[in-house]
Design a protein around this nucleic acid. Structure first.
Length: 133
DNA sequence: GTTGAGCGTT
């Protein structure tokens, strides 16, 4: 009888270990940067800074605007001087409404340009003999 | 004139 050809999945899963920041749930006040979402399209940096500067010293407030329309994308970033204040502001303003729209605050992911980019080193794939050494 | 979850440039 015909034998069911077993799919030889001997390809393992390679040894690609994608290491993220090992923190998929940024609930740690280790970062002083807060991600603010759910912002109204009428909210500006001044309003945010004015609303968050009351909980701590805001050193940086950045709202992402669209390059086509020039309207705010509805999210921004707030940089506090202390992570503790950021956590306080987060726990304090998260869920609250600003300009008629509820805010969604969470710790921002450190997007660093030219940061520690983890290069997946593929090993055991073909006869790749040290192409990257 | 609109829309509605998300993660950004100097």
């Amino acid at each position: 009888m015909s034998n069911i050809v077993r799919r030889s999945l001997l390809v393992h899963h390679s040894t690609i270990h994608l290491r993220f920041h090992s923190n998929l749930t940024p609930s740690s006040p280790n970062s002083n940067k807060l991600f603010v979402g759910g912002l109204s399209w009428a909210v500006d940096e001044k309003s945010l800074k004015d609303a968050f500067s009351s909980y701590g010293e805001v050193t940086e407030v950045r709202i992402m605007y669209d390059k086509d329309s020039g309207r705010s994308r509805g999210f921004g970033f707030i940089n506090f001087s202390k992570g503790d204040d950021a956590k306080t502001a987060k726990e304090a303003m998260d869920g609250k409404a600003l300009l008629g729209r509820p805010l969604r605050i969470s710790f921002a992911l450190e997007k660093v340009r030219g940061g520690p980019v983890v290069v997946p080193r593929i090993s055991g794939v073909g006869d790749v003999t040290r192409l990257n050494n």
